[in-house]
Computed example of a mutant assay.
Amino acid sequence: MPKSKVRKKTDYTINTANRTPVKVKVGPSSTWYVALMLGLMLFGLLWLIVFYLVATPSSLGADGKVLHWMYALGSWNFLIGFGFMVAGLLMTMRWR
């Protein structure tokens, strides 16, 4: 049986000009950034809790109109609450 030929692999060199290190501003996030990030997530959670406990009709005898303006928003309260929480979670991607 004939012996197969061994192909010579071409060696390539990496262009070192493209791999120069870039200085990146490294440091911890400021205190206000972390406070705002956590505050947005907690505010969104608080918004949903208040909506469920105060602004929706319940079996406890409340007619759901304790907070008239929040009751009038209806299902938009979910978008508002989750919107605040998502904004806080998106801020975590830049947190150092």
Rank of each mutant, 00 (worst) to 15 (best):
M1G: 14
N77M: 13
A17C: 02
A17G: 09
G74L: 00
Y52G: 12
T31D: 15
F78R: 04
T10Q: 15
A35V: 06
G81H: 03
V66D: 14
L53C: 12
F43Y: 08
L46H: 09
L38A: 13
R96K: 11
T92A: 15
S30Q: 09
L67S: 09
V26S: 13
K23G: 00
K9P: 10
L79Q: 07
D63P: 02
S4W: 09
T31P: 09
G61Y: 00
L60N: 00
L48P: 03
G81M: 08
V86F: 12
A87H: 03
A17H: 00
T56P: 01
T31S: 14
K25P: 06
R94I: 04
H68S: 13
I49T: 09
A87Q: 02
P2W: 03
S29N: 08
M91W: 01
W95D: 07
V34C: 07
V6H: 10
A62M: 07
N15L: 09
G81E: 07
L67M: 14
V26Q: 11
V50F: 03
L42E: 07
S75A: 09
F51P: 00
V6T: 14
L36V: 12
M37Y: 00
Y52M: 10
R19W: 02
L89P: 05
L48W: 04
I14S: 13
V50K: 00
H68Q: 11
V6K: 13
L73D: 01
V22G: 02
P57C: 01
